[in-house]
């Protein structure tokens, strides 16, 4: 898709706030789970094509991803992405350094799946609450690969583009940048926009 649809200031502001709440909830849940302070930065939203996203993530960079497919009123593929090395760091920090490197790698898949599940659920939950709509959500899937491969297998339609959110995660002195990506098709984008407007008009 060459042209990315636009959102106006208020739509974008509301979407941002929805993710802000989602990410805030995720931080609280993660912090409760691992019993340590976790900071998540204010999310920055962007709309990108697949090619642009691959460039942003780094063509050859090995990433680890957790994705959950969302369907119902709108269809999207939600993905949480972390550079592979950083994901090991997250797991190590969250598990409190007592486990050997080999052990961390062993647990990476399981641990990241749950972390991804928490972050994605929080964001999808926040969307669902803001729109007063229930989505059908699949269980999370874990995958390690370079960006092009990760995106290819999750492409929903030929006209999909990406609602891209950069978040910074800080825990015990480590700052790690991760990314939330919602692969969304043109039709679903219109529905998203409509939902945002509906919420806006009911609020104000």
């Amino acid at each position: 898709m060459d042209k990315i649809p636009q959102m106006d200031e208020l739509e974008l502001d509301l979407l941002n706030e929805i993710f802000n709440v989602g990410v805030g909830n995720a931080a609280a849940s993660l912090s409760q789970m691992v019993k340590q302070e976790i900071k998540l930065s204010v999310p920055e939203i962007d709309f990108l094509t697949s090619d642009q996203l691959i460039k942003v993530l780094g063509q050859d960079k090995l990433l680890c991803s957790v994705s959950q497919k969302v369907s119902g009123p709108l269809v999207a593929q939600s993905i949480l992405l972390f550079p592979d090395v950083d994901s090991l760091e997250i797991v190590r920090k969250m598990l409190g350094n007592q486990i050997s490197d080999a052990g961390i790698a062993e647990l990476q898949n399981e641990a990241m799946t749950e972390i991804g599940n928490i972050v994605l659920n929080a964001c999808i939950g926040s969307l669902s609450e803001a729109f007063s709509q229930t989505f059908i959500i699949d269980l999370p899937e874990f995958e390690r690969a370079i960006p092009a491969i990760l995106l290819e297998s999750r492409q929903l339609s030929s006209d999909s583009f990406i609602l891209f959110i950069r978040i910074e995660l800080s825990l015990s002195e480590s700052k790690i940048t991760g990314y939330l990506a919602f692969l969304i098709g043109g039709a679903s984008f219109s529905i998203l926009q409509k939902s945002l407007n509906k919420t806006l008009s009911s609020l104000i």
Binding site: E114, N117, N121, I124, T134
Partner: peptide, 9 residues
């Protein structure tokens, strides 16, 4: 919210 989850060991 219909959110599925993984509660890992």
């Amino acid at each position: 919210h219909g959110l599925p989850a993984i509660v890992s060991n």
